[in-house]
Each structure stands twice: as C-alpha cells, then as structure tokens.
C-alpha cells in the first residue's frame, strides 16, 4: 500500500519532468531526440512513461542490492554483539580457559594474537615500506622491473591464505627450521616444528601487500615539488628520501601497519599448521613455542569442542572480541587514509 503510494508519487514527479521536456518540442529538440541514432542503437522505445517506470525499477534494484549488503552486515554485527555482550567482561578477557575450555576466559588467545601481530609487523612493515619506496622513488613508472614487482605484489594479495600456510610449513618449518636444527642443534627438534615465529613470518608474507599498497599510496601524495626543492638544494636522492619523503609518509606507513595488523589478527588459515595450538596451559615464553590465537580459538570451539551448545557464549564472546579488534583497527585506518587522501587534493 505504502509502496503503491510512493510509486505513484514518483511517477507523477517523473511525468512532470517529462512535461518540461515536451515543452521544448517547439524548437525542434524532440525531432533530434527521436531520430537520434543513439537511441536506435539501443533499441529503446520512445515511450517516456514506460522508460521512467523502468528507470524507477532499475534504480530500485541497484539500491536494494546495496541495502541488502548493508543489512546483512548489520544483522551479522547485531547477532554477534548480542550473543557476545554478556560475556564481554574483564574476567573473560584476563583469565585462562577452565574445565576443558567450557568455562573461563580467553586471555592466552588474546595474548597470542597480540604477540603474533607484533612479530608480524616487525617483519612486514619495514620490508613493505622499503618496497614501496623503491616503487615510487627508484623504479621508473613503466619499467619492466617495476611492473613485475607490482604484478608480484598483486598476486601475493590474491593467493589464498591457505597456500601461505602450506608455504610456511614447507619453507619455514621444514626447510629453514629443520635446517637450523640440524646445523645448530645437531638434529634436536626445536625449530623444525610449528611455532609462533614461523606463524608470524607466514602472516607477515600474507600482509606484505597490504603494507606496500598503503605506503605507496601515501608516498604518491607527497608533491613532486618538495622532492625537487630538496634535490635543487644539493641533497642526494637518499637524503631527500630520508628527510623529505619518509617523514611525509609516516601516516601511510601507520595505515599500512594497522591494516596489516587487522588482517593478520583475523586470518586463521595460514597458522592452522604453522603454530596455532588448541589449548596451552601456559603463555608462549619463547619464539619456538606454540601459541593460542583468537581466530583459531573460534574455529576449534565451534567445530572440535565436545559440547558446542554449552560453550556457545564463549564462542560468541570470542568472536565479538575479534570483531571489535579488527573493526576498531579498520576504522582507525580508514580515518588515517581519509586524511591522507584529503592532503593529496589540498
């Protein structure tokens, strides 16, 4: 009923608009309008009423699609926050799981996640930044090398995360790790097994493209005039990068780091078999220890736990914590990025 009314009102508005067009008929506008090859090409009827009804429907469809996506997102957030909010207490965040993970908190998972993203950032941020500096400052825009690196970066961004997991297993654990064991420890098994270091490095590879793209975007916002000014004063290229380009790109590096952390905190597939543990009674003390992590915790609690219904609140609580973490990081990154983009226009 309401829709009908709305539809009618829109239709009458559209008709009004048509009237203004028909008024133009006097000066020959209409003839060109109808004979135009553009419309013949499109095989459109000149019946304007029909066209506008169609327009209303088509525009409505696109709007509906956008709204459906937004609605799904909102429903998802509401359901998860609704289910998790009762668990969201200080105790939940700071205690260990108890009684076969059916009670207690998720502190080791939070700790493990934090450790994971810190080690990951230490590895990914400098490498990503340097690659971005190469792409914007050293490489010629259309040179073969720059194009191959860009292609490589984009490929890295689309490789499924599980492949990184396989790579972490095949390269870090079985090649580097076991190699280190046999060289330094005489074959004693220490590094040749899943641990937090290998998991973090695997994750660093996964998040490298995120950092590169963000930093590159920030570097491009630094005006060419500033680089020229520095060079014209007799600064070398490296001095220019260090003193003019780099300070101007710090917000971009920060954005990249935050986005990378947000991605790394949420990904599970790469660490499934490179270091994440089901349950540990102690926090990881060294780089060769396994660790618990939020995403993996959600996964095992929902699929491998003995009594899924009993632990449902914990699952919702953990999911909510993870979502809050990634969302807040994303929002910070979006704000930073918005500021960088504004600077480019200014």
């Amino acid at each position: 009923m309401m829709l009908q009314k709305f539809y009618n009102s829109v239709r009458s508005k559209k008709q009004n608009r048509n009237n203004t067009i028909t008024e133009l008929n006097a000066d020959g506008f209409s003839t060109t309008f109808q004979k135009n090859s553009f419309f013949e090409m499109l095989k459109l009827k000149t019946n304007r009423y029909k066209r506008d009804a169609k327009g209303f429907i088509f525009e409505g469809i696109t709007l509906a699609s956008a709204l459906i996506i937004v609605a799904i997102l909102i429903v998802m957030l509401v359901v998860i926050f609704n289910g998790g909010k009762s668990m969201f207490t200080w105790e939940f965040l700071t205690t260990f799981p108890k009684e076969g993970m059916t009670k207690g908190g998720i502190f080791p998972a939070i700790y493990g996640t934090a450790l994971l993203v810190i080690i990951m950032s230490i590895a990914a941020v400098p490498f990503g930044t340097i690659t971005a500096i190469y792409l914007t400052e050293y490489a010629r825009e259309n040179s073969f090398i720059a194009r191959s690196i860009r292609f490589a970066v984009r490929t890295l961004a689309v490789i499924p995360s599980i492949i990184y997991g396989l790579f972490g297993l095949g390269f870090f654990i079985k090649y580097v790790g076991t190699g280190m064991d046999s060289v330094f420890l005489g074959g004693h098994l220490k590094w040749g097994q899943p641990n937090i270091l290998w998991a973090s490095l695997t994750m660093a590879l996964l998040t490298l493209p995120v950092v590169i793209v963000s930093v590159e975007e920030a570097l491009k916002t630094i005006p060419r005039e500033l680089r020229e000014a520095s060079l014209a004063l007799g600064a070398t290229k490296w001095q220019t990068i260090r003193k003019v380009v780099f300070p101007g790109s710090i917000s971009g590096i920060l954005t990249g780091a935050i986005l990378a952390v947000s991605r790394g905190a949420g990904e599970v597939a790469p660490i499934l078999f490179t270091g994440a543990a089901y349950y540990l009674a102690t926090l990881p003390g060294s780089l060769s220890d396994q660790f618990m992590v939020l995403g993996y915790h959600i996964y095992i609690m929902t699929t491998q736990s003995a009594n899924v219904d009993q632990t449902l609140p914990i699952q919702f609580g953990t999911t909510m914590v993870l979502l809050l973490l990634t969302f807040s990081l994303n929002i910070v990154a979006i704000i930073l990025r918005y500021r960088i983009r504004k600077r480019r226009i200014a």
């Binding site: 690659t131 050293y138 790579f167 095949g170 390269f171 001095q239």
Partner: peptide
C-alpha cells in the same frame, strides 16, 4: 646513497622472490 640504494633495490625484489619460493616449495612438497 650507494648502500641505501642497494638495500632498497634488493628488498624490492622480495615480493618476486616470495612468489618464486612459494612456487618452489609448495610444488616441491
């Protein structure tokens, strides 16, 4: 300048290296 340029150029090839390594190690297994 010399060292910085060499390091930056070296690191820049990392992403390509990673892809090749992934190719190699995943296939190797």
């Amino acid at each position: 300048d010399f060292i910085a340029e060499k390091i930056i150029k070296g690191v820049a090839f990392l992403s390509i290296t990673i892809i090749i390594l992934i190719f190699f190690f995943v296939f190797r297994e």
